[in-house]
């Protein structure tokens, strides 16, 4: 079941490394966590920006996940009765729907969408919230709000 690193993109590898970095942090293994973080930044540094990328491409990928990706994965997880996988799929699919709605709202409202309000992301499940204050408990994964972080506009 070993993943074949030759077929993986740089960002897939980076995400695998940041996942293991977090797992080490939870076990308070700082040196191991740092090594996974270094690997993740190496992989992140390898990727190249694609000049012609657009939000429409993004929306198309998200829609494909919602129409087929999550469905096939849920079928497999149900068949195998894999409750861990079902959990990750439930959270991920909900967060993906919120990303779709964020992009749709941004397409209509542009900068007005976040002009007078904050945007927050849950560090555990990827839940996205546009508003002044994030909810006390994440509606998707139920963690307390200290795990939900604001994404600020950066000055360029």
């Amino acid at each position: 079941m070993d993943a074949d690193v030759r077929q993986m993109t740089w960002t897939e590898l980076a995400a695998l490394c940041t996942n293991l970095e977090k797992a080490c942090t939870k076990q308070l293994k700082e040196e191991e966590a740092r090594a996974f973080a270094s690997l993740a930044s190496f992989y992140a540094s390898k990727r190249k920006a694609q000049g012609d990328a657009s939000l429409d491409d993004l929306l198309a990928l998200i829609e494909a996940d919602l129409s087929t990706g999550y469905r096939s994965a849920n079928e497999a997880a149900n068949y195998a009765d894999d409750r861990g996988a079902k959990r990750a799929l439930l959270w991920g699919e909900k967060a993906t729907k919120l990303l779709k709605s964020l992009l749709a709202r941004y397409a209509k409202q542009k900068e007005a969408l976040t002009a007078d309000t904050g945007v927050f992301v849950c560090e555990i499940c990827g839940f996205v919230y546009v508003g002044q204050q994030p909810p006390e408990v994440c509606p998707i994964c139920k963690v307390p709000s200290f795990k939900i972080h604001e994404v600020k506009k950066e000055a360029i």
Binding site: M1, A3, T11, E12, A15, L16, T18, N19, L20, K22, A23, C24, Q27, K29, E32, F36, L58, D82, G84, A85, R87, A88, W91, G92, A95, T96, L98, L99, L102, L103, Y106, K110, E111, L113, T114, A115, V119, V121, C122, E123, I124, C125, G126, F127, V128, V151, K152, K153, E154, A155, I156
Partner: peptide, 30 residues
């Protein structure tokens, strides 16, 4: 700045979802 902020949200959230999928793919611990 607003578009960049939305992109950061998508990057962050997509990464968290991908990490969780990896976690359920046999990479739950190091």
């Amino acid at each position: 700045a607003a578009l960049r902020q939305i992109c950061t949200v998508v990057e962050t959230s997509s990464r968290i979802i991908a990490e969780d999928l990896w976690r359920e793919s046999g990479y739950i611990i190091a």
